[in-house]
């Protein structure tokens, strides 16, 4: 059984009369020890999905799902108090901008020890020793003195290491990394990715990586879900999905990577933008931008259908074209 099982998850914002579905009919499963990537443009619903699962939407969004289960516990019916026993302990999350994700008023040590105190009840010398151990785990130099440091005294890379230490404090079964390297320098990005992947292997935890960097996903993930306008457009195993994308959107996304356009004069792009709240098309959400659009696409919404290596939400997936 999967560690995390999401079936038909929708998240709605706005009032009941005029709702906006930021996430619609999302299916996702993550197994223990697996790295799953979620890719998509800004506003495609990647982060909202995770926030909904963590209970971080603070009553702003309405969450509907057929199934939302983590480690055998139903996150839909669970009380807020029960959820807080899982969140931060068994499911941990790190965020995009480490410089603003740490509280400026408290030392790094305090912020690491806080989770240990709340979830594991550690106190005194044991607590301090464990915090130091975590600082060493995320390879922070001079860990002992850094425990006394305030976030503004750390670089972005160091801050993200601290965030990882906080997240790993209670040995989570699932770590969600929401664009963990986007705000960092390129050289630091690689270091942090290596650290994350090594820790994941070492501890056999599940890692859910949200990003818009396809190269990162191609390198580290076992499976990937491509999101578009709140829906999963295509889901599949790496590397098949990258070798043979079957959804037109995935294909367009891949061809927009500079490395894939060697020799071309211009980078391949998909004209138009992700439809917003008021301009969602009647048919397939990609239909206004899709290069392979057919009349049926404009009238009906495709459902996600499984195939050999994954699943795709398209009436005319690109199997044949690739084969021929």
């Amino acid at each position: 059984m999967s560690l995390l099982q999401i079936k038909n998850l929708s998240v709605e914002f706005g009032n009941a009369a005029n709702p906006f579905r930021a996430v619609e009919g999302l299916d996702l499963s993550v197994n223990q020890g697996e790295i799953v990537g979620i890719v998509g443009e800004s506003g495609s619903g990647k982060s909202v999905t995770m926030m909904a699962m963590m209970g971080l939407l603070e009553g702003q969004g309405r969450i509907v799902a057929d199934q939302l289960e983590f480690d055998g516990k139903n996150l839909l019916t669970i009380s807020a108090k029960e959820r807080r026993k899982i969140v931060g302990k068994d499911i941990a999350m790190i965020f995009q901008d480490p410089m603003t994700s740490l509280n400026p008023s408290y030392t790094v040590g305090y912020q690491i020890m806080e989770v240990l105190k709340v979830h594991q009840g550690l106190r005194g010398a044991e607590l301090k020793a464990r915090a130091l151990e975590l600082m060493e785990l995320v390879e922070i130099p001079a860990p002992k003195s850094r425990l006394e440091a305030y976030p503004h005294q750390l670089s972005g890379g160091m801050s993200q290491r601290v965030m990882i230490a906080v997240a790993l404090a209670c040995n989570p079964k699932l770590l969600i990394a929401d664009e963990p390297t986007t705000a960092l320098d390129v050289t630091i990005q690689a270091q942090i990715m290596d650290l994350l992947v090594n820790l994941q292997k070492e501890r056999n935890m599940a890692l859910l990586m949200i990003t818009h960097d396809l190269a990162v996903i191609a390198e580290v993930a076992h499976r990937v879900a491509v999101m578009y306008a709140g829906q999963v457009a295509e889901e599949g195993v790496v590397p098949q999905l990258f070798r043979q994308p079957v959804h037109p959107y995935t294909q367009a996304l891949l061809s927009s990577i500079p490395e894939h356009s060697k020799g071309a004069h211009r980078l391949s792009t998909l004209p138009g933008i992700v439809p917003g709240q008021y301009d969602r098309p009647k048919g397939c959400l990609l239909s206004p931008r899709c290069p392979h659009v057919q009349p049926r696409c404009r009238d009906e919404r495709p459902a996600i259908t499984p195939h050999q290596h994954g699943a795709v939400r398209c009436f005319y997936p690109l199997f044949d074209k690739e084969a021929s």
Partner: peptide, 21 residues
């Protein structure tokens, strides 16, 4: 602020999030 979201993601109680963070 992001760090208040972090505090919530740590599974802290609402009182702790409000008063400490």
């Amino acid at each position: 602020e992001d760090y208040v979201r972090t505090a919530r993601a740590k599974g802290l109680s609402p009182a702790r999030v409000i008063f400490i963070h």
